[in-house]
Write a protein that binds this DNA or RNA. Structure first.
Length: 180
DNA sequence: TAACTAGCTTCTTATATAACAATGCATG
DNA sequence: CATGCATTGTTATATAAGAAGCTAGTTA
């Protein structure tokens, strides 16, 4: 099993927006500086996900620890926009999770040099002087795994929890075959 | 010279290393 | 009171994805 630690999702309001006016109106929750970055940041609380809104009406949600939390943040975001008359209604827009960042562990300490050879040098990168984790890009899974000597594993780039689960499972099987 | 492409910026999150800064405490 | 060592804290390293906008480089 993998634990979701971060969810990145995106959607579109379908309308062009005046971010300067919105930032002025929602001064307490919106942070916008076009010289620094073209997106306007919406923060709903300290540990809540961050929503970045763009001129085009497209937006991204980052920092949610579940898909539900991402949806909740999006709902709050849409409500505030409709309440302030920025949006006529919150319908007819798409919203999709683009990236799941997950964490898990294999339950034993790992020799990463041996693991790199075992998994195959063409699908792994391990340069401990540059970064302590081994980068594993399994050819049969569409995500990337960072494997550490402690046995902890980060799975990122997955578009579903199932994909992350499957990728971690295959890593675990490789580890079991190699070190037993 | 114009159009296009590629790469970088911002942000989030776990993970683990080294290198560095800054501070605390003890000993001479 | 000054120096040395230890601890704590911050930053960098690397990963993925979305977004818009800027710059740099290439090509027609």
């Amino acid at each position: 099993m993998v634990e979701v630690v971060n969810v990145v999702a995106s959607g579109s309001l379908g309308v062009e927006l005046d971010l300067e006016a919105i930032a002025g109106d929602l001064d307490d929750i919106v942070d916008y500086d076009s010289d620094k970055y073209p997106g306007a940041y919406f923060r709903f609380g300290d540990s809540a996900p961050l929503i970045t809104l763009y001129r085009t009406g497209k937006y991204i949600v980052t920092g949610a620890s579940s898909e539900e939390e991402a949806h909740t943040a999006r709902g709050e975001f849409l409500n505030i926009l409709t309440d302030h008359g920025i949006l006529p209604s919150a319908e007819d827009e798409w919203f999709r999770v683009q990236n799941y960042v997950c964490m898990s562990e294999v339950g034993e300490k790992l020799n990463l040099s041996a693991l790199a050879i075992g998994l195959g040098l063409e699908v792994t990168e391990y340069e401990p002087e540059q970064f302590p984790g081994l980068v594993f890009r399994p050819s049969e899974h569409d995500c990337v795994l960072l494997v550490f000597g402690s046995g902890k594993v980060i799975i990122t780039g997955a578009t579903s929890i199932r994909a992350a689960d499957e990728a971690f499972d295959s890593l675990r099987k490789h580890v079991a075959d190699l070190f037993s």
